[in-house]
Simulated assay, not measured.
Amino acid sequence: MYISTTQLQRLKRVQRLLDHLQPTADPEVVCVPDTKEPNDTVIIFTGSFNPPTIAHLALLKQGSRYAETQREPVHLYAAFSKRTVDKESVERPLLLDRVILLQDILRRRLPQAGILLFNRGLYVEQAQAIRHSFPRVKRILFLMGFDKIEQIFDPRYYKDRDASLAALFNLAELLVVPRGNDGEEALNKLLQQPQNQRFARYVRSQPFDASYRDISATLVREQAAGYLHDITHEVRRFMLGTRAYAQPVKRVDGSEVDIYNERIKYLSQLLGPVS
């Protein structure tokens, strides 16, 4: 379980940021080391990236293509939250490992994209964090799949849905790509509902290659048939090397050892408590 000095320093820098971010504090955002501070117009794709798939990468590339059509400077970011809505129970691999893995992928495949870390999970909270932390940002666009826009308009996530949505759209706009069979028609149907019509002008559909629509990080975690086609070689190497999604290994004496749990213990010895 050797970790080089260089890698250890990267892990330490990211873990310090994660330790700083508290989900119960006011909305806050920080840049992962080597990410340029946001300014002008920003496109942000927030996810759990557990693990990153080629669909995540394709969606970020779609964001990059949209940026190229704009007249003003546009900067692209992937983002994590210490509190991911509807995924709070997902504990492994560590958020620390996922941040480093995504950074490795983007450096090689989409170097213009940076990575942000939020302490809160709702988009309105993330928009507030951006506005507070980076006053040079003029315009915020959140990039997401159709499943996320359904979540945003779902009242069960809010004490006062309309007030929260008004606050969100006062700060940000949404770029939505299809997921599964839910394309532009499904998006239009959602936005035409009476309770949603007032917010429709802040949401715009984006094209997305149909071959990526059904790719699922859940199926990759479960190592379903054909999952290797849905991930990059960086993710394959991570899965093989850490066994983050694998079952415990049986020893000759019949006992079991969880390889990834051993990694967590090792990192904790080097870094202190890890997350």
Rank of each mutant, 00 (worst) to 15 (best):
K265C: 05
K87D: 06
A58D: 08
E72N: 13
E28Q: 15
R120P: 12
V29R: 02
S81N: 07
P273T: 08
P178W: 11
P194C: 00
S81I: 12
Q9W: 13
A127C: 04
E256L: 11
R83I: 01
P178H: 02
G121N: 13
D97L: 02
A246N: 06
E88T: 09
P135E: 09
Y157V: 10
K189A: 14
V99M: 05
P27K: 13
L106D: 04
P178Q: 02
Q9L: 14
Y266K: 07
D26E: 15
L57F: 00
R251W: 02
H56R: 01
L267Y: 15
V235C: 09
S89R: 10
R201F: 15
P194E: 09
F45E: 04
R107T: 00
K265W: 06
A186Q: 12
G180H: 06
R161M: 11
D258A: 03
Q15C: 12
V29E: 12
I149Y: 14
R136L: 02
G183F: 08
A225K: 06
L59V: 02
L171D: 14
L122Q: 15
V30A: 03
I231C: 03
L96D: 08
R109H: 09
E28Y: 15
V137I: 04
Q193Y: 13
L168G: 03
F80E: 06
Y202P: 09
R71Q: 15
Q206P: 02
N181L: 01
R139Y: 09
P194V: 11
Q192I: 11
E91F: 12
R198K: 15
I149Q: 07
Q247H: 13
D86T: 14
L8R: 13
T5R: 13
T35I: 06
Y66D: 04
L95M: 14
Y245G: 09
R108P: 08
P111I: 07
Q7K: 05
A58H: 04
P51Y: 07
